[in-house]
């Protein structure tokens, strides 16, 4: 039982303390620990990737095997993944080759299009937010509109009030970004920092142990 449950917690505690203390010791031995931690982390990561790839193939192979609805798409995903490996092995990985071209003209193009698709959905989200009709929702949208106008040339064209000495949309957007936005982001960053600090302490002290699994 000790080797299965307690010993991993001992490893976590020892490694946590060693790496935390290492930060405060300006010595070559400390740098040695840091350098090797990076190398060891990369090496362990190699095998972590294997788990990820195994998971991908297992999920899709099981779908094909059980003939679940839409299993044909899983077959397509497996074919594409194995196809890329074969193409890389036969044709090489250089720019202009099949391997890079397949990636650039399929995956990269699809990813860019999927993200651009969000332009439509984010517009409808803005419409729904505006329909909330709360003053704070209006503040959110006004800030968004001013920031957007401040980033494009049309923002300066519509800033006709600059003739009487008032700030342009660019100036207002800069102020929003540098003052109220900065305050909100700092508060969030402080919250995230405190949360991360507590989580690292919980991990090192063995209070948080969900990563051990249920077995």
């Amino acid at each position: 039982m000790f080797w299965k449950k307690q010993f991993p917690l001992v490893i976590v505690f020892v490694m946590g303390v060693v790496m935390a203390v290492q930060y405060f010791i300006p010595h070559s031995a400390s740098e040695f620990v840091y350098d090797n931690y990076l190398k060891w982390g990369i090496t362990i990561g190699i095998f972590g990737h294997i788990l990820g790839y195994f998971s991908f193939f297992r999920v899709h192979v099981m779908k094909v095997k059980k003939k679940t609805p839409n299993w044909g798409y899983s077959l397509l995903a497996i074919f594409c993944a194995i196809g890329m490996i074969i193409v890389a092995a036969l044709d090489g990985r250089g720019t202009g080759g099949y391997y890079m071209n397949i990636y650039l003209y399929t995956s990269a193009a699809i990813n860019a299009t999927v993200f651009s698709l969000l332009a439509f959905y984010i517009s409808s989200a803005a419409y729904r937010a505006f329909r909330a009709r709360s003053v704070q929702a209006v503040a959110l949208l006004l800030a968004a509109i001013i920031v957007m106008l401040g980033r494009v040339p049309i923002g300066n064209y519509v800033s006709v009030w600059t003739a009487i000495g008032l700030p342009s949309t660019y100036d207002i957007s800069q102020w929003i970004l540098n003052v109220p936005n900065m305050a909100a982001k700092r508060a969030i960053a402080l919250g995230v920092g405190l949360g991360s600090l507590l989580m690292t302490l919980k991990l090192i002290l063995g209070i948080e142990r969900t990563y051990l699994g249920n077995q």
């Binding site: 299965k4 976590v12 505690f13 020892v14 203390v21 930060y23 931690y37 402080l190 600090l197 051990l212």
Partner: peptide, 30 residues
């Protein structure tokens, strides 16, 4: 259960590595 040793190393070292850096960069700098 054997995977817990590697996970323990990665999580422990990662947490220890992050601890002073979170205080330095995430809290004090802000």
């Amino acid at each position: 259960w054997m995977s817990r040793y590697a996970l323990g190393f990665t999580i422990g070292a990662g947490a220890g590595f992050a601890l002073p850096r979170v205080i330095q960069g995430g809290i004090l700098q802000q």
